[in-house]
Design a protein around this nucleic acid. Sequence first.
DNA 1: TTAAACCCTCTACGTTTGTAGAATTAAAAC
DNA 2: GTTTTAATTCTACAAACGTAGAGGGTTTAA
Lengths: 121, 121
Amino acid sequence: MTLSKAEEQLMQLLWKQERAFMKDLIDAYPAPKPATTTVATLLKRMQDKKFVDYIQLGRSREYFPLVKKKVYFSKQVNSMIKTFFNNSPSQFASFFTEETNLSKKELKELKALIDSEIKKK
Amino acid sequence: MTLSKAEEQLMQLLWKQERAFMKDLIDAYPAPKPATTTVATLLKRMQDKKFVDYIQLGRSREYFPLVKKKVYFSKQVNSMIKTFFNNSPSQFASFFTEETNLSKKELKELKALIDSEIKKK
DNA sequence: TTAAACCCTCTACGTTTGTAGAATTAAAAC
DNA sequence: GTTTTAATTCTACAAACGTAGAGGGTTTAA
């Protein structure tokens, strides 16, 4: 089960807020904001898909993610790696390094980071 | 304009073959293979979206990609970076390095690769 | 207490997607 | 030459998606 584009956008807003009432989510939308009913529909569909849940507070619902952004993102990347790079993360990594425009500074940071990863192993 | 899931799968087959007749594409599908009409429909839609074109050979068409895999992939990654990492490739990179299970060896290769990228700058 | 703000469910409608049957045509194999 | 194979177009239909009006409650601020 995956999120559609519109659902994903909403999910992003929810991840950012951690927990939110519908109003907060709508506030967070850039203009042109969708109708409240649109957001309500999306939230309900996302519930059905088990991506969000809520607790009833008074007559309002405080929504929260059921899936961590990291986990969701990981799945996305892994599926891309599988699709595009024959399931080889290192192939993906090298492609990424070459194709993305990282500055020299960023590259150095990345290198340092990799170093610390290597040490962990 | 983007490809749908089913279209993307077909596109992968076409990228692999570089140029192909419909039959070749269908052959390349894992079971259960879709009906030929299904593939034909997808191909036509992909044409409309300007992702493939063909040349008429006899009464058959040899299809080929209009968009390079690399380019398409790049766009995917960039949109993910934008969505998940606030448009920061380096944030993405560090996340990736930490979360993906690269072996020590792969990490070292990646590091070497980054080094050569640094030198280029 | 009345208007404005807020939230929810139900319903709906146009578009896109996944999938494929029917009909037709042409070529290839027998 | 007739059956088989491959392709193509047309048509279709169910599911998923994007979007939102209508209707019907509360609540809060005037």
